[in-house]
Amino acid sequence: MYSNKWIGSLYVTPFVIGFLLFTAFPFVASFLLSLTDARLQDQLGAANFVGLSNYSEMAADSTFRQSLGVTFAYVFITVPLKLAFALFIAVVLNFKLKGIGLFRTAFYLPSILGGSVAIAVVWRFVFAGDGLLNQALSGIGIGSVNWLGEPTTAMFSIVLLRLWQFGSAMVVFLAGLKAIPEDLYEAADLDGASRLKQFFLITLPLLTPVLFFNFIMQIVQAFQEFNGPYIITAGGPLKSSYLLPLMIYEEAFKYFNLGYSSALSWVLFIIIALFTAVAFWSQKHWVFYAQDRDDKGGH
């Protein structure tokens, strides 16, 4: 709009400074740290360069392998389930009925509050030995389960917490559904396509951009989950819910191994980067954009 480049540059200066200071520099520094044996309590000058030994150490570290496996399991279970559930409910909600707004509110609320410590605390009580879930189960004659004490069920509890927060993905799906022109369905009706066919031939293809967005966001968030497992299970029992972000935190701030922790964080970064890269690369095969999206604005 305005031809004066330098005034424009002035407006983005805060971002450039912030990016260099709080993102680019720590990003590089974290990789450099991952090549050292730096410890939290020591001056940085005391650290030694150890090459890639932090990375090779991981191969032998059974805790790391456990954590990595748990993290993948957590992501692979929660992301598809959450997306499918969010899409399903969005389709059910996308209907002109009285009180739909109320349901949308009810479904959206958990994803706003879900990341909080308070909710994690409630969750812990729900799954506790004498908690809500066991009371309900004994009410229908099923014996109580030691939810947080068994590896499988502990994982189940934190997976459920994530699924509970399907609302934000649902709201995005809902907006995407509303953006699909009604006359496409009317035309399909005249062509004699069944509801199910309409869903797979019209709704789903037109929803792929939104699906893509949700997929990326969910992947990135799921790999970084910390609050829930830290407070509900503390990663246990037997490291069965010890997600990588927990391990990164504990290595650094409990065991003071800054070098090793940095190396772990870089592994997590590379995993996320690979997933998003593959997603972006693959989108031309499955994401359908109605219009060409060019970079507009700023002439």
Binding site: M1, Y2, S3, N4, K5, I7, G8, S9, Y11, V12, F15, V16, F19, F22, T23, F25, P26, F27, A29, S30, L33, I216, V220, F223, Q224, P245, I248, Y249, A252, L258, S261, S262, S265, W266, L268, F269, I272, A273, T276, D295, G297, G298, H299
Partner: peptide, 28 residues
Amino acid sequence: RFAIPGRKWLFALLMATVLLPKSVLLIP
């Protein structure tokens, strides 16, 4: 609103910060 030099690159960096896991920046 402005034709900033290198706008495309800066914008790409901006979007990258959205996807960058915070834990990689935590220790530094």
